[in-house]
Write a protein that binds this DNA or RNA. Structure first.
Lengths: 224, 224
DNA sequence: ACCTGAACACCGTTCAAGT
DNA sequence: ACCTGAACACCGTTCAAGT
């Protein structure tokens, strides 16, 4: 029979290879065939360490998110802390574009997985320090988390289309033109906003959204 | 050779059946096998009307979203309009839970599809009427759209677990207990917020988030 | 123009057999 | 305890052939 592997396979190694495949080839690039090839093994070996593909995807997601949230920083004001965590997730999602759909899928599977609490905690602990009534902590954190993941996911998709600066302005021109060309009756707003999209800075625009929600949170005790 | 179908197949019929399958069996329930069986035909017939599975999913998403946004209502204040659109999407996503990941995937594929403009327009046109500077229209609309889709998706996932009222409070108790049982060092926020989750109204909490962002939008011209 | 249905390549997963 | 690799059931898609 064939020789066994010289060094033992590990779960961490499998997860690391999975992240590599996802990064280079996207979600559809993660297959057990590709995995066995890179790891020079058979499917049975992987199934010894990992229950199934879903668990592997969850583990890859968890590893990348933990990494993104682990960055140590000098402590700042609660607002600055929220901004820093948001940017950390923004960058992680830009670097690993498969993360966005994966995270929203995991959020949409209830709080069973370990990723949902981790993300809510990373933002919520600073919302708590914002000095708003406890009754609005959860709502405020939800608004921030969903905006951050959604906007970062959309940005990552755009970022993937373009790499060079020339590509980028061409791409934005195309988007702007597409919006400006929509039906005037049905899409008045999109047409009016088309010009804006042409020359905006992604991170700046993203942070403006975070600030908008933070402002709403600050004013929440005086809600109508 | 076998008889041909008596009545011609149509693209709309295929999309309608796809929505049915997605509703009853979830995303993994939509297969060409199941489709051919329900439509009493072969795969080739479907491929005549539809380019591939991705296009079919997009079309199903588009049909359901168009339906959700088409509801006519008495015109109200811009804030009320935003709330109404948000609730319309909330309900649609609760009714069709496969919609949430599908929508975020479509948002994350750039503004190529027809669904992204449709959703942004439905909310943005009322943001425009809110009386805030044009420069913040797009940011404000983004914040609302991403919150609405994210929070609605998470709600739909929870709603699927429970149906009866008894199930519901059991489920919330379990979630609350899980959060309260998290590590005290790592998850102080989640533990503090655990009790809150036990008896909240989903739609009310969802709308509170929308109001929070609306409040932020109203105060945006005085951002620091 | 529209449909049939066999066939193909690929996928996740299992499992008896090995060390 | 950990790994091998053949095998299975299922999937999206193609295409020559029919009407």
């Amino acid at each position: 029979m064939a020789q066994r592997r010289a060094v033992a396979l590990s779960r961490a190694q499998i997860i690391g290879t999975a992240v590599e495949l996802l990064d280079t080839d996207g979600e559809s690039g993660l297959t057990f065939r590709a995995l066995t090839e890179r790891l020079a093994t058979g499917p049975g070996a992987i199934y010894w360490h990992v229950a199934n593909k879903g668990e592997l995807l969850d583990a890859a997601t968890g590893a990348v998110v933990a990494d993104a949230l682990a960055a140590e920083r000098a402590a700042g004001s609660p607002r600055d802390e929220v901004r820093a965590v948001a940017l950390g997730l923004f960058d992680a999602i830009e670097k690993h574009p498969w993360l966005a759909p994966q995270l929203s899928a995991q959020l949409s599977r209830g709080p069973s997985g370990p990723v949902t609490p981790k993300i809510f905690e990373s933002i919520g602990r600073h919302v708590r320090d914002l000095g708003v009534p406890k009754g609005s902590w959860f709502t405020a954190t939800s608004a921030l988390v969903h905006y951050v993941l959604g906007a970062a996911g959309q940005n990552a998709a755009n970022a993937r289309v373009v790499t060079s600066g020339k590509d980028r302005s061409e791409f934005l021109d195309a988007v702007s033109a597409a919006w400006a060309g929509l039906d005037a009756e049905e899409y008045p707003f999109m047409r009016e906003v088309a010009a804006e999209v042409r020359d905006h800075d992604d991170r700046e625009q993203f942070l403006a959204g975070v600030d908008l929600i933070l402002t709403g949170i600050g004013a929440v005790h005086s809600l109508p």
